[in-house]
């Protein structure tokens, strides 16, 4: 694939000072690069910010989606490396939210020289409980999730592309929202959900050899505190920051604190 192909495939958008440290923001399961909307402008004041959509999400090239490549996190990690090879910006700080945290871990383990650091935002190396490990979900829970994706097909597909009812108080969002925000093909969402919630990347954590910041929320229904502590303990020399925030998306619920944590880490990683 050529430069244009990879960059348009993943709808790569670059913003901020050309000579600034490069920060790549990678969205998780669910929406697309719009999820960084409340933190990207502040980060772009100091850093060269790279945003992209995973293949299958947002405005990525859906024709590039193949079940075999995207049924495991390795396929997504390979995409991240392809983007970095094309941009060739030197070592970057990769900020991965949710499942993208492990995508970043896989990419940084494969080609550490491309990473100045990793910020793992509400990460989880394994969602399902295991002997001596609490991921927050039982095997039955995840079965139920996957089953609900199968059986509630129309519900999910309708919800994946919800009726956009207009945002009178935030008209700047409107055009973009009506285009693509969080719109996902139900089949792609099923495969991504499977890749995400059946993943187990615990063994990859000790292999991370770049400076790493783990950011967790004080209340997170998807990645509980134990998981944040586990990731912190398993990645040698990592830092852990706990935001006083609720939910799985601190970049939306606590954008200032999230920006601050990323900024402090990028400054320190240089």
């Amino acid at each position: 694939m050529g430069a244009v192909d990879v960059l348009s495939r993943n709808c790569v958008v670059v913003d901020g000072p050309v000579d600034g440290p490069v920060v790549v923001l990678s969205h998780g399961f669910g929406c697309d690069q719009n999820l960084w909307r409340l933190v990207a402008p502040a980060l772009a004041e100091r850093f060269r910010v790279v945003l992209f959509d995973h293949v299958g999400a947002g405005r990525s090239d859906l024709s590039a989606w193949r079940e075999d490549r995207y049924s495991s996190l390795e396929g997504y990690a390979e995409d991240v490396l392809e983007i970095l090879r094309e941009l060739d910006p030197g070592p970057v700080v990769f900020v991965g939210h949710s499942v993208s945290a492990m995508i970043g871990v896989l990419a940084a383990v494969a080609e550490p020289e491309r990473f100045a650091g990793l910020v793992l935002l509400t990460p989880s190396p394994r969602y399902v409980d295991d002997e001596g490990y609490r991921g927050g979900f039982s095997a039955e829970d995840v079965d139920e999730l996957l089953e609900s994706l199968e059986s509630n097909y129309l519900g999910w597909s309708a919800a994946m592309g919800p009726v956009i009812m207009g945002t009178p108080d935030r008209p700047e969002l409107e055009e973009e929202l009506t285009n693509s925000f969080c719109r996902t093909d139900p089949k792609i969402a099923r495969v991504f959900a499977r890749a995400t919630f059946l993943s187990d990347n615990r063994a990859d954590l000790p292999k991370v050899a770049v400076p790493t910041l783990v950011v967790e929320c004080s209340q997170d229904a998807i990645a509980p505190r134990e998981v944040g502590a586990y990731v912190h303990a398993q990645i040698p020399g990592s830092e852990l920051v706990t935001l006083d925030a609720t939910g799985h998306c601190p970049q939306l619920s606590s954008p200032e604190a999230t920006t601050e944590a990323i900024t402090a880490f990028v400054a320190g990683a240089r």
Binding site: G30, C31, A159, M160, P162, V163, M165, T167, L177
Partner: peptide, 19 residues
């Protein structure tokens, strides 16, 4: 957590979602 809450946060309104 992955769709509903972020969308609601961004849009202020969200309707017709199956749960």
């Amino acid at each position: 957590e992955t769709h509903f809450a972020p969308l609601l946060r961004m849009q202020g309104e969200l309707g017709g979602v199956a749960l």
